[in-house]
Design a protein around this nucleic acid. Structure first.
Lengths: 226, 226, 226, 226
DNA sequence: TATGAATGAGCGTTCATTCAT
DNA sequence: TATGAATGAACGCTCATTCAT
């Protein structure tokens, strides 16, 4: 009676939040267990609903899964766009640093962990979703970073590297460091470092790799000092 | 190798090649479908055996899964050790390049793809295996790379970077590029590049990031130090 | 009419035409799908109502089913009585022909098809309804035909047959021919005959069977007596 | 252990009787409950098996149902052919009487009751089975009876009636009387008659309807009697 | 050892029934 | 009165596991 499976016993039937509630719960459960092992009953319980209710909004488990993936991907895109829109135009390095921090926050969010797991574990059986993910998430993000670096190359902040190539290096480092930081119990590598330190290390490494050809002494400092 | 993350060595009677056959088949099927969705029947079929036979060698599905993971991890370690033993001591850069190429081959092998999928998708429910993986695969590899870089730093091939930090950057880039190359249909980023080009790009990027305070630095510094 | 095979008259408030609408829709759906496979939702949709509304008039699916059967049976009885009342007293043969044509029309109506299906498919689980059907439909109709034949026997139109026995033969022939005519695609037997022809054949056959022993009164007996 | 759901505890796993066992049980349960209301578990229990076992032999409930129908129809055909082969050629009337008795036995068997129920209740959703039934059971039987009557017409035993028309009258009478006799509790019509009496009544009625046109007979007989 | 028929617990899905509006 | 969202019991079907052979 007073037992609420999650935490909200107060509001009864706010009618049009159902699909979102279900998707949120489903993302969590799918993320924990994977598609096959996730039980609709658990998703329902987590959403504070009963099993049958899910079927009022989604035709079956697979379609719910697809919707979860699509929804999460789209949410990620929108979040990124919102962030981008709010961004101030600065030097390429500063823009890059800002992007890295924003991306890092996302990488460390539970939703990302779930999405990442699902993408790698299940999307081989959903080629359309895999393509959607590749196009809308990976390539989109690569294009964004490529643009920033391109600007840096043009204005001499960075060396004359192929911006697309450089862009491809950043994501992996951030992604994997994000995962390591999310499992500090499992990986000593990042165990005794703060997130802040880790980001700085990645960013520093990345900037070293693309810093202008050293003929000019201390590239960044000499520039800014001028 | 002699490390057993859990505690049961009882089904260790390997009368012939059965266990290995089963493990190989299981890795493939688990890799394709995931733990929950994989059917023992399919594993048996792939191994050319009948369902019941699996139970002569493994007490149940979960234990088979654990053994598949353990076995694959151990195989990976052994392979790496074998490679390392065969390696000639060269300059750090050359050693690094050699390591990268060997690692790349592994990253592109089907067994790695399966292992990667399973590690990320299922190991959250098998903390002991996760720890085993973290320790014996990730950290081991990091230590190895760290050692190479350390040598390079000491002999002036590389700049004065924390070798452990640099080492952490290499794996992610290789790993993700390996995955992109394995799914060229999904990712335009690497679609029109050969594996060779991709490795070179990664290696080049990495070496740029750790190259000694560039040719420019040293001369001038030696000057100023005078 | 006033016979209620079970015992509950409580939901008898028929404020408008709702109950009739529902019963009509239910008869159609039950007739198509059977009791178990019929979905209340479909009945509601067919009646132009919503699912919940049915429960304002009928306590549950089973009771709705019972009422559909009762109602349909009663309607059939009333229809027959109305017809009978309108009938002109004629020769037994003519009365018989008239009855046959009226009955035939009913046999070919969709409501009868549904009722027949339900009676044979479901009534074994509803003994009270089965008894009601046997008493009020089958036996009633048999009594009616018996009466007509009795008259024919008495006035010499028909031979000296047991009227009750003869009566039992008529229904089955009409019934099954009705079904065959309703499925001419499935049965070649009646495929290329009109309904008119079929009725005539049945009636002719029946009259031949009960026609008076021709001038030589008792045909067979005269034979044997020789 | 010693509990046997039906009646056979002695033989364990006579391997190749499974499909037949299941079909027999399924016919009974489907016949009692109809397709939708029949529970696989009940069929399994009746067959002395467990639920899952059915799926080793039939892919799903619907296919089991189809197989039950097909199988029962074919069994009926084979039974009829066997009977026919054993039949002695006699006068048409005697052959007819023999056919009637054989058919009657079948009509009163539990398998027929089940088949009849299923045919009328479910076959509208299985057009292929309905066509199969129409062709292989109804029309086949009609052809058989038609042939007998044709012979009787040719040799003067019966009047000059269209044999196909006459044939169509016999089945319905037998069928419905069979059903009435199977439910003597529900129908007073046959309540106090033995099966023997009922068959005789039907046969007598039928023979009267097709007895040689008495008009022809009379003159000659009246002559001789004079 | 090896097999594969048999089992039955478990989950996805449906739908009669309820009830807040 | 009427609605339709919500519930949860019930059932079809799957598959890990057992076991007689």
């Amino acid at each position: 009676m007073t037992i609420s499976p999650t935490q909200e016993p107060r509001w009864r039937r706010l009618p049009e939040e159902r699909p979102q509630q279900i998707i949120d719960a489903a993302l969590a459960i799918f993320g924990e267990r994977g598609l096959a092992a996730a039980r609709l009953e658990d998703i329902a319980k987590r959403a504070g609903l009963s099993k049958g209710t899910i079927y009022l909004y989604f035709p079956n488990k697979e379609e719910l899964f697809r919707e979860v993936i699509r929804h999460t991907i789209i949410a990620q895109i929108e979040r990124a766009e919102r962030e981008l829109a709010a961004a101030v135009q600065q030097s390429a390095s500063e823009t890059l640093a800002q992007f890295v921090r924003g991306y890092w926050d996302f990488l460390r969010s539970p939703n990302f962990a779930a999405l990442f797991r699902l993408v790698h574990a299940e999307l081989s059986n959903f080629p359309d979703l895999a393509r959607f993910y590749g196009r809308e998430v990976v390539e989109r993000k690569l294009r964004l970073v490529t643009g920033i670096i391109e600007r840096g190359v043009r204005n001499g902040e960075f060396r004359d590297i192929d911006p697309a190539v450089a862009a491809r290096m950043l994501g992996p480092m951030l992604l994997m460091h994000g995962m390591w930081c999310s499992h500090r119990d499992l990986f000593k590598a990042t165990a005794n470092k703060t997130d802040e330190q880790v980001i700085d290390e990645v960013l520093d490494f990345f900037l070293h790799a693309i810093r202008p050809a050293p003929t000019a002494k201390k590239p960044r400092e000499s520039h800014s000092s001028k």
